[in-house]
Amino acid sequence: MRQSLRGIWVIAYRELLRFSRERSRLASTLGMPIIFMVVFSEGLKRQIGALAVGVDFVKFMYPGIIAMSVFINAIFSGLSVVWDREIGFLKEVLVSPLNRSGVVLGKALGASVIALFQALVMLALAPLFGVPLSLRIVLELIPIVIVLAFSLAGFGLLIGSRMRSQQGFQVLVQMVVFPLTFLAGVFFPVNNVPRWMEIVSKLNPLTYGVDAIRRIFLVGEISAASRNSGHSIIGVTVFGHTTTTIEDVALVGLLGAALLIGAIFSFNRHT
């Protein structure tokens, strides 16, 4: 048990040390969501305008971008395993007395801290995009980001435990993770899209993650009246039931826990 705990913090410590020493990674982590935010919001603001009473496109997209960057950062914990395998460092870890589950959870923790850091940076920039902030938003965002990050890290690590090359992992991210992210309602509400896309989106667990974060920001802005009329821009409506924040988070969290356990097993078997 003590061995596990030490493993978690040692591995997480190195993830963060790495992150802080790689300027390019730091820059792209912080830069990418801001670029997305500026380009999309400026580019589409006039075309789209208000999506609901009091909610313009920028306010709608902003939480989506936070969710997206949390996903990407967390999934990259898997890339970090592949990278360690390529440079040989993974052997140094595997031959040490640290146990495998500690290593997996440590990678997930490291990625989650980085994801949270990024979410907080985005949060600090909220006034720039005209998004109002409150203490309630900050306090709700932190635990939800942590749950989502751990869950997605589970997914990334499950893949990373089997992959041998970084290129392979990058291809997977481009072919699977990016499409799933775009279909998760980052840029548009999933309750009002063509039928096929709606089905795909509602089967996509990321959709619930995006919704959980979006609800934090928009729940106060949308009156009960507009929520009930036709297609809501928050909540995911499945079989007539519109999910709540708790349901969103529970769904992603449970799936994530299963993925993390899977990652630990896979890591034990394949190394």
Binding site: R6, G7, V10, Y13, R14, L17, R18, R21, E22, I87, G88, F89, L90, K91, E92, V93, V95, S96, P97, L98
Partner: peptide, 29 residues
Amino acid sequence: RRSIGLVFQDPTLDEYLTAIQNLRFHAYA
């Protein structure tokens, strides 16, 4: 694992870290 030290045929250092950071990581582990 606790009783042995190992230097592999191929390098297993983290090149992005300093010499002392690599050693500290090992000491923690």
